[in-house]
Design a protein around this nucleic acid. Structure first.
Lengths: 226, 226
DNA sequence: GCGATTATTATCTAATTGTTAACTGTAAAA
DNA sequence: TTTTACAGTTAACAATTAGATAATAATCGC
């Protein structure tokens, strides 16, 4: 059943906005959760693992941009859709917002109907979110919430990049990920790292996991296989 | 190899707009094509198969919305990203635009930088147009996603060039590929390799596959046959 | 700020993959 | 039958690519 009904988390400190957006999205068939500030948004996101998060930029405590940056640094939320909501319509903040990893940026005052259209458009493009859930393949369990990998119930502790690597590869078992894809998914498009960096991480993962579940496809990339 | 450089088609009847957007997208590394009206946009789209189409809504002849609706009705363009550009900022047209199947809707006056950010955001979300489908012919499956060739469920591992060769030939079974075509498709037009290079690769593929599914057409080229 | 962990780079090595060259086989044309 | 024009075969060589390891840099938690 999961994947059919989409979960949307809305974070805004203005109750009115929360209410009107909730109402409109619920009407459209989404399951809506709300958060009243940035910290709350993160807590809730981790609890309910939503398909989409709508973030007000100006919130007390943590701003929407900070929340987005934090979530995007976690493998579990790399693929989660994020829309910014803001009163600041200036160019610079819009660009900044989109570059932080948001999928859309909507200026206030908001037309609820336009927002709903934009939400629909995003979901049309990304039909089923494949991340956020723990992945089980054979005797290996990879859980992005706890950052733990279990092999035959034996826990393996991986560093962040190592975890992101195995999680990415395991998200589509068998599929070859080009080095470029790995770079843009894990390091981002702006960051430039040397050629051997991926290899070194791959090596560490292979070492720690013991099992050789990562196959090299020379000249192409790597893939997860059991 | 394709997949890394994205092709963007821009359709607008105002040359100034075309130019400024082209310039900014080219700077960002995209390959840009332009069309001056709706009809032209469709012709070009079919010719170059772009990854993203930016459509002005108000164009002489066919409007952007009509172009979008037409393209979306064709299987080849179901996955193509589409952004509307428009002076009409009213709610209704925005909703209409998004519901026609557009992925984003940007109001004029356009900030080129914001547009570039939005284009980047879309490509970030839809990174790989799943380049290449798996080919099944008889008892042979050639899958570019996993980089595997299966013969009667028996997996054969090919090197990169070998795989590219069989994939190219199998993409049009029965059709003869001239040696020149093979060279330009797999090696590219700049690279110059000796006459026997293709033969050697063909030989390895034949050897590894066991089955002789590659037929030599003397004086012409090679073709895939079962 | 300090120590520990994690990430990246540099360098070397090993392995694989790609190309060339020289030779052989073969089938059609002269 | 001989010639010719290709393609096939093979092995040697070249180039590319990834693995290993150690050293350096950056980051995190206290």
């Amino acid at each position: 059943m999961e994947g059919i009904i989409k979960k949307v988390l809305i974070a805004d400190d203005e109750p009115d906005i929360l209410e009107i957006i909730s109402y409109n999205l619920q009407n459209e068939g989404y399951t809506v959760f709300t958060a009243k500030d940035g910290k709350d948004a993160i807590t809730q996101a981790q609890k309910i693992n939503p398909d989409l998060i709508i973030l007000d930029v100006m919130m007390p405590g943590k701003t929407g941009v900070e929340v987005c940056a934090f979530l995007r640094s976690q493998p579990a939320f790399k693929q989660t859709l994020i829309i910014f909501l803001t009163a600041m319509s200036d160019e610079a903040s819009q660009i900044k917002g989109l570059e932080t990893g948001a999928d859309d940026y909507v200026n206030k005052p908001i037309s609820p109907k336009v927002l709903v259209s934009r939400v629909n458009a995003l979901f049309r493009r990304v039909p089923n979110k494949e991340t956020g859930k723990s992945i089980t393949i054979g005797n290996i369990v990879i859980d992005p919430i706890t950052y733990l990998v279990k092999i035959n119930d034996h826990e393996v502790v991986l560093a962040k990049k190592e975890f992101e690597l195995i999680y990415l590869l395991a998200s589509r078992p068998g599929r070859v990920f080009l080095r470029n894809e790995i770079l843009s998914q894990i390091w981002g498009n702006e960051v430039i790292v040397g050629d051997r960096t991926i290899d070194v991480h791959i090596r560490k993962v292979r070492q720690k996991l013991g099992t050789d579940c990562i196959t090299t496809v020379k000249g192409v990339g790597y893939k997860f296989e059991v």
